[in-house]
Design a protein around this nucleic acid. Structure first.
Lengths: 230, 230
DNA sequence: GCATTTGTTGAACGATTGTTCAGTAGCCGG
DNA sequence: CCGGCTACTGAACAATCGTTCAACAAATGC
């Protein structure tokens, strides 16, 4: 079952040589499955190798260590996620507001709403402290994530030139709601539904757009009754 | 230095007997320091015992295992955080809107903005999968956290009876922004400032209040241009 | 002062960790 | 068909993991 050799190969072959690219990809996939299933704490070199159906020594042949492997997986997972979100966003519609809604809905689609996926991201985040490379991957991918949101918001702002809008802060706020709700849903799916999460994001976006979060406002965090607070 | 015996005790005493409550408290504090410093992966029974200046066997005398100890720490940390937030909130002012601002500011005060503290929470969250008790602590404490926000929002809604407001969903949204921004700040403090985080929360709150998130709205997550959207 | 209670120790257990490296074997050019 | 390259194996390593438990010692009551 774990060995999908063609039948003609016979039982004699001990292993199959693969190109570095193929093998690296297989190792990353196996690592991903292990992280999702057991979490970072229980994911050992041996667990990964058993999942990938290779021997313990192979990982250190392709990677300098466990840390480098996981950093590589992080980069791949983050890029895949962003690509998926962008696809769904573009599929949603033409104007910026509709595409933002598509972004929200894709964020809370069944593909992403998985406790295993949360375990994967928690593993990455826990490693940012001990591993420079993992922290670097986080910075790089999160910046791209923000840039995607900023692009949409800039487009949306140009459609409504009468209002000022701090694109950077608004994007940060959106990513905050999205991430926060996603984490909480994965930790306890019974608290709210994905559809409710999307509605919350829409409402927050409207609030961020109305306020504008203009950079000219006072720098300190004074509470100050909100200007449009009625 | 680690032994603060009174001078008269002399160098002969090997250890000091303590009451179960004292010892349990000391073990929890030591565990907290270890989780903040090294993360869950590198926090072993031996690390904790060295930090608490006790022998390896003592933990299993007070707790059924590592898991039970950490669940206990989780409960304590979550309760302490909520108590602090409530204090700062009440200190902020009288009306609900001002107290909510106080809640925001306390969430992003220097006490909470610590990468070590994030490591602690990541440890807890990663364990919800393998440990029933840790998951139970999360459910219980997060519910109390939500109830605090819901109380403030209900109070705020009663001050403005003309608008409908889904208190539950709004509280979930707020907790999402707060958590999401907090996690992201701890992962990379250079992206935005605490004061900016507070401003974002205020703007999101205004948006949530304006929309009302009334439960009568369509249940599906249809984008639909927001009713009050200018 | 002595016996009792029990908080505390620390050696020892088997299991598992990441990494190393000498050796094996699949595959490709000849 | 055969040498050579190298992807690959897997035993072995030292270190560390969580847990156990018999022995020890500090406090308490007598």
């Amino acid at each position: 079952m774990t060995n999908d050799e063609t039948a003609a190969d016979g039982p004699l072959r001990k292993f199959r040589r693969q190109s570095p690219d193929e093998r690296r990809h297989a190792l990353m996939e196996a690592t991903l499955r292990c992280l999702a299933e057991h979490g970072a704490e229980k994911t050992s070199i041996r667990t990964i190798c058993r999942e990938a159906d290779v021997s313990v020594g192979l990982i250190n042949h392709y990677y300098s260590g466990k840390e480098a492997l996981i950093a590589d997986v992080y980069e791949r997972v983050a890029n895949d996620l962003l690509a998926t979100l962008r696809d769904e966003m573009d599929r949603a519609g033409g104007d910026a507001r509709t595409r933002l809604s598509g972004f929200f809905q894709a964020s809370f689609s069944s593909v992403n709403l998985d406790a295993g996926l949360l375990r994967v991201w928690l593993s990455f985040w826990s490693m940012t402290h001990q591993s420079h490379s993992v922290a670097a991957v986080h910075d790089r991918t999160y910046r791209m994530y923000l840039q995607t949101l900023e692009g949409l918001l800039a487009e949306l702002a140009s459609e409504r030139p009468n209002r000022a809008l701090d694109v950077r802060l608004t994007a940060i706020g959106l990513s905050g709601v999205l991430d926060g709700l996603w984490v909480e849903w994965c930790l306890n799916p019974r608290t709210f539904s994905p559809a409710e999460a999307v509605r919350i994001c829409e409402a927050c976006l409207d609030g961020l757009l109305a306020t504008g979060l203009s950079p000219t406002a006072s720098a300190d965090g004074a509470p100050a009754s909100a200007p449009g607070g009625r």
